[in-house]
Design a protein around this nucleic acid. Structure first.
Lengths: 245, 245
DNA sequence: TTGCTTCTGTGCGCTAGCGTACAGAGCATG
DNA sequence: CATGCTCTGTACGCTAGCGCACAGAAGCAA
């Protein structure tokens, strides 16, 4: 029954060998992440890494004037805090909870210890980092070449893939922040999607009505990223299938 | 006297321990990279990794319609082919020589062997990857928020930092490809810089006349990336100082 | 010289997205 | 029920950059 709160709902934890998992498990601490909470601030050392199970975290790049853009999104398929084992300790990006829920956290040095055993877990983390890298690169090109309409679809689908439901709790204002555009632009794009019956939204609650319709309108970036996740992390089931087991 | 062709002009090779370097050195093969040459194609396995010494390589993200955008640039401070040790074998990006010159290449499996010794070299490569990640993230946000004028300055400075001279062999057409914009846009922006005496260019040859002037006009992205490289790879001298030794 | 190619400059209409301003609608709270 | 706040919708002028078209200039080749 505690299926509802098993750390191994996180795909990376699930993909560890039993031996590795047993070493980490006693130190995994369940935490509740609330919308808007910050897990990492630009330039500050992280004390913990986070393994979301049913929450989503956005990695944002912030500029001096406060403007920001999401560079990647992390859900149950990933981990927040890769800079800890990558060696930088800090990142110049922020990590903000985009969809509240549960995550398991682990003290940074414990993760590093396991990582530097240089076993299967290390390879797993590196492959995950590689997938994240692809997501960032694709975001860069998408920002340059694609319309807001397409980007909104991409964002919705990436979020949807990481959620157990069809509902997103997220205002247009926040989405605009993520995409690095004006709120009014999001209102307009989202209005089109709603008019065509693909989504319904109401004061910070977005319901996806027709996923296939979104996939028709999205730019190739979504598929590129998804395929790369599937290729690099096949046994972690980047889709929802895993959560339904 | 063979200072001119020492593999350790590459900052990563220079930062290896002598023991590590001795293991790799016999297998380092000097190659001449020519402008426009492709070192890696999207989705294809790489057989070699490359350590540029006085050349520059662009990592490009390519879309179905052929449009592309540079997501990062690699010079004597780095290595081309991180996906080999990150575990993906392939990347969805292309690697194109942006400035001809010399590099040393190494068979992929030899690099992996050394990497999975999990010694200092591994940590070095991971820190470098982290720096590259920052460059990509900053490119994403720069694409979103900054004017072509600013981006051109950023691009020029990033290239300049990786070159031994003040001269770039690069047409406006190619720069436009890198930045993912129209050639005419580059002509216009570059025209302003030339008019103000910061650069001079002539049929594919750009000379930087006033570096400080460029630094005044560039967006914060340049400095952010540079600082992160310096922080993560201090002993590899990301500026030109190293080359002057 | 002549011709061909490559590179750069310029002009013009078009569109996506920006900045700003404001209005109405839903929800919570006193 | 009145007040205030948050969220969404809409309108309008503005600008950066796009797409296209073409012209001149510089270099290469015969």
């Amino acid at each position: 029954m505690n299926q509802q709160h098993d750390p191994r709902q996180n795909h990376l934890l699930a993909a560890l060998t039993d031996e590795e998992y047993e070493r980490l498990a006693p130190n995994l601490e369940r935490v509740n992440l609330t919308l808007g909470e910050s897990l990492a601030e630009s330039g500050q050392a992280m004390r913990y890494v986070y393994f979301p199970t049913d929450s989503i975290v956005s990695l944002l790049c912030v500029m001096e004037d406060g403007d920001s853009t999401e560079i990647a999104v992390v859900g149950p398929e990933g981990i927040v805090g890769i800079s800890l084992f990558m060696g930088g300790e800090t990142t110049p990006s922020r990590a903000i909870v985009q969809s509240g829920g549960t995550a398991y956290r682990l003290k940074g040095h414990l993760l590093k210890d396991e990582f530097y055993r240089a076993g299967p877990m290390q390879r797993l983390m590196l492959r995950y980092t590689q997938a994240l890298l692809t997501q960032m690169a694709q975001t860069a090109i998408c920002n340059r070449h694609h319309s807001l309409d397409e980007q909104l679809c991409r964002w919705l689908l990436l979020s949807l893939d990481r959620l157990p439901t069809n509902e997103l709790l997220m205002t247009q204002e926040l989405i605009a922040n993520m995409l690095g555009v004006r709120r009014e632009g999001v209102t307009e794009s989202a209005g089109k999607l709603q008019k065509d019956g693909l989504i319904a939204y109401h004061r910070g609650r977005i319901t996806i009505l027709n996923r296939a319709g979104l996939e028709e309108r999205v730019c190739e970036c979504y598929e590129t990223v998804k395929q790369e996740y599937d290729r690099l992390l096949p046994y972690t089931h980047s889709g929802k299938a895993f959560l339904r087991d």
